[in-house]
Design a protein around this nucleic acid. Sequence first.
DNA 1: GCCAACGTTGGC
DNA 2: GCCAACGTTGGC
Length: 174
Amino acid sequence: MSSTPRYWLMKSEPSAFSIHDLRGAPRQTTSWDGVRNYQARNYLRAMKVGDPVLFYHSNADPPAVVGVAEVVREAYPDPTAFDRSHKHFDPRSKPEKPLWDMVDIGLIRVFARPLPLDVLRREPGLKKMELLRRGSRLSVQPVRDREWNIIVKMAEKWGESLKPAVYRKRSAKI
DNA sequence: GCCAACGTTGGC
DNA sequence: GCCAACGTTGGC
């Protein structure tokens, strides 16, 4: 990263929380709790209000970038770490000295068509992207400016290409 | 369901 | 501080 990252990618398993869940959430906003990896946490702490985020569906069919969100609240303690009954409870994190943080994000856009991982892999400009690195497991990661621009353009084209096909079908009175 | 890649834990 | 064992992630 040449300077402070401004663009990000966040992974979620759609069976746990999808971009459609975000669309249906109050104020189309959610807190991003449950991150229990130090590198991902440090990226959460680097996020600024207004930073754009690619929303990625992992463990999905197909795995894909599905839309855009933005940071609406900067890092603050993740209360699920204090909750003994919670799946992500961590006794090392105390309210007086929190170990894990979260941010809030708000929905910006749901792509017309999810942009699949294998399509991203075919784009030469994305060769160095963290998401595409072999064995990459980081659930919160920075995205380079150039990568961001490429992906947003790809998503537009990818969605548009669907519409003419559907339109043709309909107008052909099949 | 399989399994490679990775992060974490804990014995020494 | 090393490293084997283990648990998790996530594509396939």
